[in-house]
Design a protein around this nucleic acid. Structure first.
Lengths: 149, 149
DNA sequence: TTGAATTAGTTAGGCTTGCTAACTAATCTG
DNA sequence: CAGATTAGTTAGCAAGCCTAACTAATTCAA
C-alpha cells in the first residue's frame, strides 16, 4: 500500500494515471464485448433511457455528452433493433421523445451484465479494501464535473 | 461519504459503476482535446514507445491491447508527424522496431499535460482524501489484469 | 536441402462513433 | 406576420477499431 502515509501525489499526476487507467480498462472491455451484446455507447445511451424515463433526443445527447447528430445516429441504431421507440411530443412538434421498449429493458440488463462480466471477475479477485476504493472512486469520477457541464 | 461503514457493494455493481464512470470521464476529455494535441490512442501509444524504449509493432499492439493492423495504422500516423521512426531489425527481417524521436518525446509530455488538463483542474478541486482515493483506484485499475493476458 | 508451416506485419475493406456545417420544421417574439 | 430561435436531421468527413487475406521472412522437418 504505497500511498498510505505517503506524500500526496500532484493533481496532474493523478489525472494522468486515471486517464491512462480508464483507457486501458475500457479497451479490455471492448474486446470482451461483441457477441450479441451492445457496444458501450449504445448500452450507455439505452441505460439512460431506461432509468431516466422517456426523454428528448437533446436531453439524451446532453446526458451522454455527445452532439445531437451523434445521438440521432445512436438512437436510430437502437430503434432499428427495437430497443427504443421515438414518440412525437404532443405540445411541441419539434421534439422527439425516446422511450425504452420492454425488449430494450431486458436487453439492457443482460447486455450490461455481459459487458462488465470480465471486469466483475477481476473485481471479485480484489480485497474488500480495494473494492471499496474502486467503488468510492467511481462515485468521485461521476461527480467530477458539475451536473450540467 | 455513503460507502463508509456501509455494506460492501457487490462486485458486479462496482464493475458497472466503474465502467460507466470511465466512459464518461473519457468522453469529457475527448471534447477538451483536439487543438494541436494528440488523440488518446496516439498519445497512449506514444507514451509506451517513449517509456518502454524501442519495441516491435507486435509488442506495442499487445501493450495497447489492439490488433496489429490497428497499431500499423496508429504508428503510421505518428510516423508521418515524425514522432516515431520505424527501424528494421538486424536479425529478423520481418520485425519492425518503433522508436520515439526527440520531437516525439517532447510532444508526448506536452500533449499528455494538455489532454488531462481539464481532468487535472477537477482533481485540484477535490479534497485530499478524494484525491488519494482516485490515485489508489488508478493503480488498482492498471493492475486489474495480470501483466500479459 | 527444400518445401511446408509459422510468424510479423501490411493492405483492403467495413463498421461505429464522433464531429461540424447546413438544412428543415416548429415555435416564440416583437 | 416577419425574424429569430430551437429541435432535430442530413450530409460528409475522420479516427479507431475489427477481420480476412495477403507478402515476406524464418523455422523446422523429412
Amino acid at each position: 500500500m504505497s500511498t498510505h502515509r505517503a506524500r500526496p501525489a500532484a493533481p496532474a499526476a493523478i489525472a494522468d494515471r486515471l486517464h491512462s487507467a480508464a483507457i486501458h480498462v475500457l479497451r479490455r472491455l471492448r474486446r470482451a464485448d461483441t457477441a450479441a451484446g451492445l457496444s458501450a455507447p449504445r448500452l450507455s445511451a439505452l441505460s439512460v433511457v431506461v432509468f431516466a424515463g422517456p426523454l428528448t433526443l437533446g436531453q439524451l445527447a446532453a446526458a451522454e455528452q455527445v452532439r445531437p447528430p451523434t445521438m440521432t445516429h445512436l438512437v436510430r441504431a437502437l430503434e432499428s433493433d427495437q430497443l427504443v421507440i421515438r414518440e412525437p411530443d404532443q405540445h411541441d412538434g419539434r421534439v422527439v421523445r425516446i422511450r425504452a421498449t420492454p425488449k430494450g429493458r431486458t436487453l439492457m440488463a443482460r447486455g450490461r451484465a455481459r459487458r462488465v462480466e470480465a471486469l466483475t471477475d477481476r473485481v471479485r479477485a480484489l480485497s474488500l479494501t480495494e473494492r471499496s476504493v474502486l467503488a468510492r472512486a467511481a462515485g468521485i469520477m461521476e461527480r467530477l464535473w458539475p451536473p450540467d457541464g
